[in-house]
């Protein structure tokens, strides 16, 4: 460093040390404390005794002495409840100086700002995970990348709606402890939701013992009715397999019924200014829910629109006319029944 006038050096030293509570320890051979001075107390270092081992008096130096390099800087160190300090350790080989300089407010503020940024990152990670859980990773990715846009005021879409419901769950929940009810419910919901996400549905709602999936929001090569029926078959297979395991273990088993309807619905964002949610409304939502009400255990009931578009699966379905609550007249539906065991 080039020589500077004494006045400048004095000013720089004063400026650099102002508000920084300098304190020092001078450590001789064998790590014995030779001398100390400055504001050691503000750093939580007190009762120092010259001529005794320094590490017993200042335990944070454990492992740091003897220093195997000429200097070491430890930024922003806090000892117990003492003031935060930058710790400088300087060595000439056998003797050491430890210099403590407290952090000024601006430095602490800077560190807090950095931390705020990382907290926002963590928050973003958590929110993405929550969105993934509610909407499925594919939808979140598609929304994020702008591949699909959902008009907040609502728009018409041609979709397939699937409702799946656990049968007799009300009586099961009345006969079992709440912990058992929730554990069982989560087990079954897991078996019902995974196939929906695998077939690119948006899981619109989880209503106690029932789930609603919407196919056709995410653009896929396969038609929404095809996706919905494949998901329904996967759900029944997963529940059947799970029931076989539970029955072997002597545990209670439950059954599932499914309804699917296909047609135009209104897709948009519903809610108040403080709480909004993605929503699908329309006749076909109600129709799918009513079909699911009528479905027997391990049965899939689909409407005519759905049936027409699932050519590869039509042979497994039989035609049936049913009367649905809230809808006038008979509705033509098609039923598929899977053996429960």
């Amino acid at each position: 460093m080039k020589a500077l006038p004494k006045e400048i050096t004095t000013y720089l030293v004063t400026h650099a040390l102002e508000k920084r509570n300098p304190a020092y320890l001078f450590i001789g051979r064998n790590n014995v404390l030779k001398e100390f001075g400055g504001d050691t107390a503000v750093y939580g270092i007190g009762g120092l005794r010259r001529g005794e081992a320094v590490v017993d008096q200042v335990p944070f130096l454990e492992g740091l002495l003897p220093l195997r390099q000429s200097s070491l800087i430890l930024p922003c160190v806090q000892i117990d409840t003492g003031r935060r300090a930058d710790v400088h350790i300087i060595s000439d080989g056998s003797r050491h100086w430890v210099l403590l300089l407290s952090l000024v407010d601006e430095e602490i503020e800077h560190l807090r700002l950095l931390e705020k940024a990382s907290e926002h990152n963590t928050l973003l990670e958590r929110h993405t995970k929550i969105l993934d859980q509610y909407l499925g990773k594919e939808l979140v990715k598609a929304l994020d990348e702008g591949q699909i846009k959902i008009c907040e005021s609502g728009e018409r879409r041609h979709v397939s709606i699937l409702f799946a419901d656990i049968r007799d769950f009300t009586s099961f929940s009345e006969m079992n402890a709440p912990e058992v009810v929730f554990a069982t419910l989560n087990h079954y919901l897991d078996a019902m939701i995974k196939p929906l996400l695998e077939e690119s549905a948006v899981v619109d709602r989880i209503m106690g013992d029932a789930v609603m999936g919407v196919f056709g929001i995410l653009t896929m090569a396969v038609s929404p009715p095809h996706q919905a029926v494949v998901a329904a078959l996967k759900i029944l297979t997963a529940v059947r397999d799970m029931n076989q395991q539970l029955a072997k273990a002597g545990k209670s088993i439950l059954e599932v019924g499914i309804g699917i309807s296909t047609g135009p619905v209104a897709v948009g964002i519903l809610g108040s200014t403080v709480r909004k949610t993605f929503s699908v409304v329309g006749h076909h939502v109600n129709l799918a829910a009513r079909l699911q009400d009528q479905a027997e255990p391990f049965e899939i009931l689909v409407d005519e629109n759905t049936f027409k578009e699932i050519v590869a699966y039509q042979r497994g379905f039989r035609e049936t006319d049913i009367v649905l609550k809230g809808l006038t007249g008979q509705v033509k539906a098609y039923a598929y029944r899977m053996q429960s065991a």
Binding site: P75, C76, V77, Q78, D80, R84, I108
Partner: peptide, 8 residues
């Protein structure tokens, strides 16, 4: 948040 390092 922990700023820097805290020693106990």
């Amino acid at each position: 948040t922990t700023l820097g390092a805290h020693i106990t």
